[in-house]
């Protein structure tokens, strides 16, 4: 076990969805500690509770039972505005369906978290720098509909990074992408992790999970296994930015 203080600590967490008479037990009792700097992949069959778990970790939803400590703070005791602030500053989200705001430029999408943070210092410069980091500086004024899937996902990653959050949560970020774009995104995530960012990645593709240093498997709302592994060395990881730019131009 890692001796460092956990960033994320889930203890006996359950989640029950009620739809009228029917109750769905999405999570049945999860104990999970994640320390700073980990790259963890959460795997499992469809319906096993992966997204539910990520929503809880991301403070988009609250557990039915159990406690969730984020940086030693019990999330259950926070009000809506404090949760919004945590999502804004401490957590970055990347979704399977990109979830960019339509009809807003890439640049505007990326600077959006800063707007909600009330942080106007060099907002445009920082947004441009974030776009540059994902190799899309030349696409700053394009709307999502004018970008490829891989490019849209990179804009989403830039948006997730703009407030420099401690944790990056990615729910099947490559689920809608072809193999080449998927690898591109994974190289980017690996590089971010190497820079010290904690990454929680949800996937059901074993291939994608090999990039992580730890793999947690879920089944029916319970943790089936929790293994450490040597992450695969991503090809071309040295120069993802240039390569991304090259891909964007081609």
């Amino acid at each position: 076990m890692d001796s460092r203080q956990p960033l994320i600590s889930l203890n006996g967490v359950t989640k029950v969805y009620r739809m009228g008479e029917i109750e769905v037990q999405a999570l049945r009792g999860i104990d999970l500690q994640i320390v700073e700097g980990e790259f963890i992949a959460i795997m499992g069959a469809s319906g096993s509770g992966k997204s539910t778990l990520m929503n809880l970790i991301g403070c988009l939803d609250t557990p039915s039972e159990g406690t969730y400590l984020l940086e030693d703070v019990d999330v259950a005791e926070l009000d809506d505005d404090s949760l919004a602030m945590i999502r804004n500053l401490r957590i970055g989200f990347v979704f399977q369906s990109f979830n960019l705001i339509p009809r807003s430029t890439a640049l505007h999408n990326v600077e959006m978290p800063l707007i909600y943070a009330g942080d106007s210092a060099q907002r445009l410069e920082r947004a441009l720098a974030a776009l540059d980091l994902v190799g899309l500086a030349d696409r700053a004024h394009h709307q999502p509909s004018e970008l490829s899937g891989g490019q849209q996902q990179r804009v989403a990653i830039a948006r997730a990074l703009i407030t420099e959050p401690a944790i990056l949560l990615a729910d099947e970020p490559t689920g809608n992408l072809d193999t080449e774009s998927s690898l591109e995104i994974m190289r980017l995530l690996t590089r971010l992790n190497e820079q010290g960012r904690t990454i929680v990645l949800i996937t059901h593709e074993g291939d994608i999970a090999t990039f992580a240093s730890r793999v947690v498997r879920l089944r029916d709302g319970l943790i089936l296994s929790d293994d450490r592994q040597v992450p695969r060395e991503p090809a071309g990881a040295e120069a993802p930015s240039e390569q991304a730019a090259a891909e964007a131009v081609s």
């Binding site: 988009l60 505005d81 919004a84 602030m85 999502r87 979830n99 959006m112 978290p113 909600y116 943070a117």
Partner: peptide
Amino acid sequence: TREIGIRKAIGARRRD
């Protein structure tokens, strides 16, 4: 609705 969800996920508060 979806846009509102995205905005909330990236930190928009109720009053925003």
